[in-house]
Design a protein around this nucleic acid. Structure first.
Lengths: 223, 223
DNA sequence: CGGTTCCTTGACACAGGTCAATGATTGTGG
DNA sequence: CCACAATCATTGACCTGTGTCAAGGAACCG
């Protein structure tokens, strides 16, 4: 008789956690027992399926959830690492045991999962169909949009990750990322100084990505 | 009293349809009323979100389903076009009205949606972290694996799509795709003659993608 | 304040894009 | 079934964007 109430009270045991730079929240193959809500800092989501461990498929910013897409599987397919000292709330996956009994929530949840696929496809087209400077522009717009969504400053902000992480995410080298930042600055679209960015001409940045008349193929490679 | 039986009988009205080469099964923004099961031919899934209309994010082969990932949204985010004359079965989306009442099916469905995200992320790493010849190798292995899964010949098959479609999918130009095929042939890993491929050294192809010691950055661009 | 990590910049090399020409394959009407 | 046309694939010569290597400077941290 005491059991049912306990099971309702227990699942919402939320832990606050802190992750030092370089620490993994969880690794590929881990049995995923928690969802995370990032409170501060920055997390990289690394795709482990592709041999090399530096294959960054996304950054998670404060206010965003982590681990949702792995919830359908018993084990995680990604590794998540703190780019800098980060704080997160962990909530146990058991909160989702209620799911089958709340169809409308389930629909919301499915939409959330589907969103992660849509985002991945957007990343495909950003990387595959655009040159270096456009990728960097797209990256900045992406960050800006997400900051705006959570009500933070979206025109001037700090890049928590380093150039190598940005480069790995965009399929470039850090030197190229640096040069693109410099070039966008020179063109007056942004102002950049190390990790601080200011977006000066939002619309012009956006236009770099929408160009219809572009050859539409971007990449090259070395090895 | 007659209603319940009727509602069970009606939803499974399956239409057989034929699509001529270049015809769209549905377009981005369409209200998606059907799921499709491809019977023969080949379909390209085109991402409409990125301006240009030739941004191929996937090929759908016979035996595979189409439209599942859009089911959570009311309108499609992709456009699907027949690469060659193709046959499909259309089943009404209403088959999914039963979903909330069958939690175990819902779980299966979520896993299916999640899969589409995982595939998109694999495409990201294939394209972003590999050079041209590795992308082409990965493309062939992908096709081969899917053919094997559905029990078809997986070592010798026909490429239903043309070089331009493959190139658009892999973020290359058709000439480069052609050269890569030729090179893989020259190395004895495959045998290719126009649209017919034979995979001669499967393991060696696979090894091209797993290389740990690779610089891990691939792309370049023109414009 | 000294060391470490990160960012920027330059010189050069090369993968793959571009342009162009030729050859193979497929489809169509006679 | 053949001839012709249209589409598609291949190949070569050359060009450019971005990778590579290297060096110097800025920011951060103890």
């Amino acid at each position: 008789m005491a059991e049912a109430p306990e099971r309702l009270a227990h699942p919402l045991h939320i832990r606050k956690m802190r992750f030092a730079r370089g620490t993994a929240l969880y690794r590929s193959g881990d049995r995923l027992e928690s969802l995370y809500m990032i409170r501060s800092g920055c997390i990289t989501e690394v795709d482990a399926s592709s041999g090399r461990g530096n294959s960054i498929i996304g950054f998670v910013l404060p206010g965003e959830m982590l681990g949702l897409d792995n919830l359908a599987e018993s084990r995680s397919t990604t590794t998540c690492v703190a780019v800098e000292t980060s704080n997160a709330c962990a909530l146990p996956r058991s909160v989702f045991d209620v799911l089958p009994h709340a169809p409308n929530v389930a629909g919301e949840f499915i939409r959330f999962i589907a969103k992660s696929g849509i985002l991945a496809r957007e990343l495909v087209t950003l990387i595959r169909d655009h040159g270096a400077i456009e990728r960097v522009a797209g990256f900045l717009l992406n960050l800006s949009g997400r900051l705006q969504f959570r009500g933070a400053h979206d025109r001037e902000f700090k890049l928590n990750m380093n150039r190598d992480d940005i480069a790995a995410y965009l399929g470039l080298r850090s030197e190229t990322v640096s040069r693109c930042f410099t070039e966008l600055d020179r063109q007056g679209l942004i102002r950049i100084r190390a990790k601080r960015v200011e977006i000066l001409r939002y619309a012009a940045l956006r236009r770099m990505l929408d160009r219809e008349g572009t050859p539409a193929v971007a990449p090259h490679s070395k090895c």
